[in-house]
Simulated scan of single mutants.
Amino acid sequence: MNTPITVVGGGLAGLTAAIAAAETGAPVVLYEAHRTLGGRGRATPVPHVAHEGPHVFYADGPHYRWLKKRGFVAGLGFPSIGAAVKIGFRADDRIRKAPPSGMLRAQSRKWLQAPVDVDFHSWAADRWGDRTAAQIANAISVVTYDADTGRLSAAFVWDLFQRVLGPAVPAVRWVRGGWQQTIDRMAARACALGVAIETGSRLDTLPTGGPVIVATDLDSARRLLADDTLCGTSGFTALLDLGVTKDRRDRNLVFDLDAGGFHESYTMQDHTIAPTGESLFQLQMPVRDNESRDDAHRRLAAFADAVVPEWRSRTTFHRTATAKGRTGALDLPGTTWRDRHAIDRGDGVYLAGDMVAAPGMRGEISINSALTAAAAAVAAAGTGARRRVGTV
């Protein structure tokens, strides 16, 4: 195979597509607009390694098998045996050790099938009441970054809720060193396969002369492909990263059932991402309609007061940010992932990323869509590849 495959974008989707295509023997060129690879998988440099929002892997899908087979998620971190893992749920403005009884009843109903064409709040309120419906929606805002998760498709929200907070043991995995470790391993694998990587190369026109995989965010893809239909629904949240001196009063994990906030300690399972004697936390708070960023950050700081006592006097690392359009597609009533933007755009152009027609949540959509795009691009380039794109 002599026809090159071009990948535009060097984030999780772009690296996956480049590796998958190169593994068949296809020549691959990857263009990344920034000077470093990684996209939303990038992290701040040591000693405090923080990401743009919660970054974990779930080990219950084909995306994870693909990563694991190639060693990209080796070296997992877990809370140490015997460590005090303090999990909490904020309800009615107080922190409690367990979810309210109504939410517990809902969690146990894993066999229920929620409808696609009804909003989640209406469907859940009919079964457990308005208060429990709102609490479930707020609990899963950690995934959606949306202050009104209840407006989304009932099937979409219910599936996420059962996957993250259902009765089954969560399949969550943390890679020591964070996602940056995974990104670095993927970049090394791409180079070893002969992928030509051009960083600091922003493309304004679509390359010609072979299949092209556009693995950028949807806004960039819309401009590059001159396709105004490439729009999607995604979340908007305020973020707060805190490095603080350790304190036994701190909580490790808190779901805010009142307002959709979320708090997590990343040093609980990976002490390498902060200096000795420190804890690294990330908190988020969905931004409400017509709410300013400053007001959202004030609500987030008040949440931090409840879960990281006296954090202002203990802070060694502090970063605030907002993340908009960073959650992958959020499915509105009447839609599923199959209704999102098609991967095959025609004329040898393929779309990969977290807002296209592939299953999963957030980064999983990127990986699954990239594997599909790579297989199609290899097939379009010719039949001379040594083997097919591997899915696992």
Rank of each mutant, 00 (worst) to 15 (best):
G88A: 09
V56P: 00
V244E: 09
S279W: 08
R151I: 10
G235R: 07
V29T: 14
R96C: 11
V8Q: 08
G61F: 02
L332P: 01
S369D: 13
P333R: 11
V56D: 00
A221V: 04
P79R: 10
Q113K: 14
R345M: 05
Y31N: 11
R42D: 00
G384E: 13
A373S: 05
G25I: 05
V254C: 03
L67R: 06
D119F: 03
T272M: 02
L203N: 07
V46N: 01
D92V: 04
H63N: 12
S201P: 01
R65M: 03
R105S: 13
D241L: 06
Q135C: 01
I140V: 15
L240H: 04
H51I: 00
K86W: 00
L351C: 06
Q282S: 12
R388Y: 01
V212T: 09
A18I: 05
R388I: 09
P167V: 03
W179D: 00
L165I: 04
E291R: 07
R345S: 02
V307P: 06
P309E: 11
R222A: 15
T245Q: 08
P115V: 05
L371A: 07
G261M: 09
D347K: 13
G348S: 05
F78A: 12
A357P: 01
A238E: 01
P27I: 02
E310W: 03
H34I: 00
A190P: 05
A196V: 12
I81P: 06
S201Q: 14
A190V: 05
R362W: 02
S122A: 12
G129N: 09
M268P: 00
L224F: 01
N368Y: 03
T24M: 04
Q282G: 08
I95N: 02
L283S: 05
A329Q: 14
A196T: 13
P359T: 06
S366G: 14
R319K: 14
A376I: 00
A50Y: 05
A26N: 06
Q113A: 12
F281N: 07
V244P: 12
P100V: 09
T315L: 05
E310S: 10
A171I: 01
T199F: 11
G200W: 10
A215E: 10
V214H: 03
E198P: 01
T208G: 08
I136D: 05
H121N: 13
A84S: 08
G38Q: 07
M355P: 00
L332S: 12
I343H: 02
D270K: 02
V172I: 13
R94L: 10
W111D: 15
F78Y: 13
E198K: 14
S108C: 05
L224N: 03
A215Y: 10
P100D: 08
R96Y: 01
I140Y: 01
S220G: 10
A296W: 07
P54F: 11
G178C: 06
A74N: 11
S141V: 09
F262P: 00
A380V: 02
T372K: 12
K110Q: 11
A83F: 01
A13R: 06
G260D: 08
M1S: 13
T205E: 15
I183M: 15
W66K: 10
A17H: 08
D126R: 15
V49H: 06
L257F: 07
D126Q: 14
G277M: 07
G14N: 09
A352K: 04
D331G: 01
R326G: 11
A375L: 00
G209K: 10
P115N: 12
